[in-house]
Design a binder for these strands. Structure first.
Lengths: 205, 205
DNA sequence: TGTACATCAGTGAACGCGCGTTCACTGATGTAC
DNA sequence: TGTACATCAGTGAACGCGCGTTCACTGATGTAC
């Protein structure tokens, strides 16, 4: 497991990590295969021993991101059990926590322009992440009388969209505007109002 | 006003339009100054008679987008008067309508990575757009008892985030996943539930 | 109406650059005997 | 334990490309007289 010498040891993962660092610092545009290779201490040509090319490297970064994302949300969901409400709220918080803690992965997943259907492993990881949120939404919506219950997938799409919007507009400094509120508060209060609208928490909670 | 010949006539605007077309087709990454010049029937060097460079051209495309965006939302707001609720809902719908109708502008504004503070004109246009939504939110929230009323800027931030999230995740085909619902329905139902949560529309509407 | 001239929007050639990708190679590693 | 050899992860040079930007120029346009 010597890191020095002609053979790297674990170049594949080192390249993914360099790519994540670059994507985080310079955005998906600023990322280059050559720079990632350089940061891993290796010639650009060496990358082709492990990946098909630039896009394939980004896709692997995104895949790893989705795996972590799904794990994190699953963990939050489990921890909130047996309360469906607690599980759901923890899952929502995990979304933002992930975006904050792993910005490189988040950007690779949602802003790099790579399709989630690029390869089966990536698609599977993304589906798993989506599944956790939908499960949490389904659990919670079972408490709503069936005739006024929205489909669980719509419910979770609302929360996903709100979370994503908060991340993109207020949790990143890119638009130049300082966010008016801490993103965590913004998301938490938004979800709170939404759940009240569904009758899932008391109006004067 | 002859379009042919040595002098173009209105090259500046032609370049902006070519840029918008390219941004729409290939994303902010795929856009190049040279290609925009070519599409406008002109040498790349000619661009420098009208813009400082590539970024400046994108910024102008975004500025025009913000102006249209603000106009559209202002029009929707006015049209919904005197009902605060109708005005607000129309404004929300205008958000999505803009994103759909002017994808090039939308991408230049929100996905190109250019800062809204890049130049004063751009900042002013963006502030005007934000102002319309905040006004609509403030009007509407006046109906909520003061002690349980969230700040209007938080209120409008929630709606902006939800709208933006719906656009990014479900109104574009980029993630590869077919959207589970029409984005318009998703946004309308999401806003409906949210407003119910604020007590602004009847629980069993 | 005609001529001289200033203006300035465009040309076209050139630049240096870093990119992604390919290729024949080399030398470190690990295994068979 | 030592030697021969297969494997294969990395090298380094080369490629063609299109990019953004600069520069001295040219020729169309419009105005003054």
């Amino acid at each position: 497991m010597s890191k020095r010498g002609y053979h790297h040891g674990n170049l594949r993962q080192a390249l993914v990590e360099a790519a994540l660092r670059l994507i985080e610092q310079r955005g998906p545009t600023g990322f280059t295969l050559s720079e990632a290779a350089k940061q891993a201490g290796v010639t650009p040509a060496a990358v082709y021993r492990h990946f098909e090319g630039r896009e394939d490297l980004i896709a692997e970064a995104a895949r790893q991101g989705y795996e972590m994302f799904a794990d994190l949300m699953q963990y939050a969901y489990d921890k909130g059990q047996p309360s469906a409400l607690a599980a759901f709220e923890a899952t929502g918080r995990a979304y933002l926590a992930f975006a904050r803690k792993y910005p490189g992965q988040y950007i690779a997943m949602f802003e790099s322009g790579i399709s989630v259907n690029r390869n089966p492993e990536l698609a599977a990881a993304a589906a798993r992440a989506r599944g956790v949120l939908e499960q949490a939404a389904a659990d919670l919506s079972r408490r709503i009388p069936p005739e006024k219950r929205p489909p669980a997938s719509m419910f979770s799409a609302h929360i996903w969209a709100l979370s994503h919007g908060v991340v993109e507009l207020f949790a990143r400094n890119s638009p130049g505007t300082a966010s008016p509120f801490p993103p965590e508060d913004l998301l938490e209060s938004g979800i709170g109002i939404y759940l009240r609208g569904l009758g899932l928490i008391a109006p004067d909670d």
